[in-house]
Design a binder for these strands. Structure first.
Length: 360
DNA sequence: CGCGTTTGACCAGCGC
DNA sequence: GCGCTGGTCAAACGCG
């Protein structure tokens, strides 16, 4: 049923500052190049450090200005520049998004790490892009079950379809499910990753059940829809391969896990505790540099790209986040490694400058 | 048998 | 209003 169109519009929505073209062939800059750290497996194999549990999403991204090494972001110029963000609409909203980002990031890190081990991550170059996370209405109150279709209300469309189905009834069409009308579907914040990988569905530690697959417009590759199989957890994710760069897998997470990661070997803290980290008074929510572009109560989505390249720098990556003070040592060789391995792509130039100024 | 995948149909939202 | 598209449902199926 999927018809192709000439419509060049990307299937995913992007922030205005980030044209879809950033996906193309990795030509765009990378938001960050995530080393193969882990989330659920977390500390395992990465030195056993617990940077996951103690750092928020922005910390992971190196956005916490307090710890930003000036040289860390010098190569970020190629990234789309985000103008200074307005104040967050609400801390709760921020927390929700952060939490989500943290989850996703954690997932991704884990995935990448696994891929590293599997040798499935190919690209030696980081191509990162921010993308999509959407918050529609009620951003502060995640409604993972908002897609419920329970209702006695029958839409005109339903009637129409039913009527039409009458003809097809003989073909054993499934009964139509009445869905709620006048009730816009609420979407969880979304967060997308681009990953250089031959594997479409990356194992991030959670258990996912595939519930759909659709052909993607202007793309020869289908998009798969997954849902967290844990009861009560409405987290979903979409996985699709970039048509521009077939080696790139775009994974979009939606929602927040309401449970710890089922795979937590070595007693890892993982990000199962990240919820608490957000509610903790000590948890400082950084300036929402990524969340400024809100329109119609909608947080623009952002894409983060991961590649295999920096997976080769796991140790440094780990140290990067875990050992913050090192950031202040520009002479550190380790820093250099990190510099080129990860955060260089994470933080927009303006932020870097801001950080610089603060340091001085 | 339980769980996950496949796949076609259905539905809602959006743009024209 | 209509068509397109993304997202979801759920029966059928496969696998361990």
């Amino acid at each position: 049923m999927e018809k192709k169109q000439d419509n060049p519009t990307a299937s995913m929505r992007f922030p205005d500052e980030i044209p879809p073209s950033v996906f193309g062939g990795g030509g765009g800059g990378s938001i960050f190049d995530m080393a193969g750290a882990s989330s659920c497996e977390a500390s395992g194999g990465v030195g056993g450090d617990k940077w996951w549990g103690s750092l928020g999403f922005m910390d992971l991204l190196g956005i916490h200005q307090d710890f930003v090494a000036p040289s860390l972001f010098d190569s970020f110029n190629h990234l789309p520049i985000l103008p200074p963000p307005p104040p967050p609409s609400s801390s709760a909203e921020l927390a929700a998004v952060f939490h989500h980002h943290h989850d996703v990031l954690s997932n991704k890190l884990d995935t990448n790490r696994q891929q590293l081990h599997q040798g499935s991550l190919l690209s030696p170059v980081a191509s990162t892009v921010p993308e999509s996370s959407e918050v529609l209405n009620n951003p502060a109150t995640p409604n993972s079950s908002s897609i419920s279709s329970s209702s006695n209300e029958v839409t005109a469309n339903d009637e129409q379809n039913k009527a039409g189905d009458q003809d097809d009834a003989d073909k054993t069409k499934k009964p139509l499910k009445p869905k709620k009308k006048n009730q816009k579907r609420q979407r969880e914040p979304r967060f997308a990753f681009m990953t250089k990988s031959e594997i479409d569905h990356l194992d991030d530690g959670y258990r996912w059940r595939k519930y759909g697959q659709k052909a993607v417009k202007n793309s020869p590759y289908p998009r798969s829809y997954y849902r967290c199989t844990t009861a009560g957890c409405g987290v979903k994710k979409r996985v699709e391969r970039s048509s521009d760069d077939p080696t790139t897998v775009v994974t979009t997470y939606e929602g927040q896990h309401t449970h710890p990661c089922p795979i937590m070997p070595r007693g890892t803290i993982g990000f199962a505790i990240d919820s608490s980290s957000f509610s903790s008074p000590s948890f400082a929510i950084p300036q929402p540099q990524y969340l400024h572009h809100q329109q119609q109560q909608q947080l623009q989505p952002y894409i983060y790209t991961t590649t295999s390249s920096n997976l080769n720098h796991q140790p440094s990556f780990n140290g990067l986040f875990q050992d913050k003070p090192r950031f202040n040592n520009p002479n550190s060789s380790a820093l250099t490694l990190r510099d080129h391995g990860l955060l260089q792509d994470i933080v927009p130039t303006p932020m870097r400058r801001e950080a610089k100024e603060e340091d001085q």
